[in-house]
Amino acid sequence: MKKYQNLSLLLLLSFLIFSCASKEKIVYYDNAGNDISNSVQKVNTRIQPDDLLMIIVSALDPNLALPFNLTSTTAVTRGNEAGVGQQSQQLYLVDGNGNIEFPVIGQINVLNRTKEEVIKELKSKISVYINNPIINVRIMNFKVTVQGEVNKPGVHTITSERLTVAEALSLSGDLTIYGNRKNILIMREENGKRIAKRIDITKVDFINSPFYYLKQNDIVYVEPNQTKVNSSAVGPNVSIIISIASLLITIATLIVRK
């Protein structure tokens, strides 16, 4: 009887050892307060090919600004008996060389430029025709992709151009219990090159990384942790594992009976 008790205790201890998880592996910002920079990074989103830009020119006399704005289009909703449409502003599509065709002025290159830089150039050119023009520029298709061990993977298009890694993960329903919080991969295209960075969100110092703020078309990938990898490996071999476990139990029973 005592041998049975010892065997049961050994099995229980083994289960507890392998099932215990370290707090540091799942808690976010574990060292908060120690490594946070006092300065906040400035977000400078740069325009890329295939971006959709909304550019609106305003002036004290609205009629003077009309030639510098794309015409609005009216879309009628299906099933709308009244035939009332919704106005939508036409957008500028940045071509593969980073150019847009602007009314009156002609072709302008906006590749890798910030909104502030584009506004400055447009204001300089339009001021020849209008005194003190007001120009607004906005990227309308700012999006990031989140994949891997999150609850809602997918492509997220946002109205703002300021998106952090934490916000992107929240939009994706946060990480699953199987997500590796210490090795999140971020991939982006910058200056014609693909670059990648891995960050650890269990330590708050990732906030100071240049990858903390995501950029247009970034990809965030949450890889599975070892628990998920092990469970995936076990899946196709369940019958073998059960057979081995049965054999071990039989052997242990024979040993205890002696």
Rank of each mutant, 00 (worst) to 15 (best):
Y221K: 08
L247Y: 12
L175E: 08
M187G: 03
V204S: 15
N237G: 01
T176D: 08
P224T: 09
D218H: 10
Y178A: 12
V229L: 15
R188I: 01
R181K: 15
V220D: 07
L214W: 01
S232Q: 15
I184L: 05
Y178F: 15
K203G: 03
D218I: 02
K182V: 01
I241R: 00
I242E: 03
K193T: 09
G235H: 09
I244S: 10
A233I: 11
S232F: 08
K193A: 14
N225D: 15
L247V: 12
P236H: 09
N180M: 02
K203Y: 08
K215V: 02
V234G: 04
S232V: 08
F211A: 10
Q226V: 02
T176K: 11
V222C: 09
D174H: 07
R188W: 04
S209T: 11
N225H: 05
I219A: 09
V238F: 07
T227L: 11
S246F: 07
N208E: 11
E189T: 13
P210V: 05
M187W: 00
I186R: 10
Q216I: 01
I240V: 14
D205H: 14
G173V: 04
V222W: 02
F206G: 11
T176Y: 06
I177N: 12
D174P: 00
N191E: 11
I195V: 13
N208M: 03
A245Q: 14
N225A: 08
D205E: 15
P224G: 09
E190R: 14
S246A: 12
T176N: 05
T176V: 03
Q226F: 09
I195P: 04
S243D: 07
Q216S: 09
L247C: 11
G235T: 14
S246H: 00
E223C: 00
D205C: 00
E223F: 06
Y213Q: 02
E190N: 12
N230C: 00
V204D: 15
F211Q: 05
I201E: 13
S239A: 15
V238D: 02
I201D: 10
Y213F: 15
E223M: 12
S239W: 12
L185G: 00
R194E: 04
G173Q: 05
F211H: 06
S231V: 05
S232C: 01
I201G: 07
D205K: 15
A245K: 02
E190L: 09
N225W: 04
F211D: 13
P210A: 10
R181M: 10
V238K: 14
K182A: 08
N237Y: 14
V220R: 07
G179C: 05
N225L: 06
N180V: 02
G192A: 06
T202P: 03
V238S: 05
N230D: 13
N230I: 15
G192K: 04
G235N: 13
N183T: 02
K197Y: 12
K197T: 06
K215Q: 15
T176C: 07
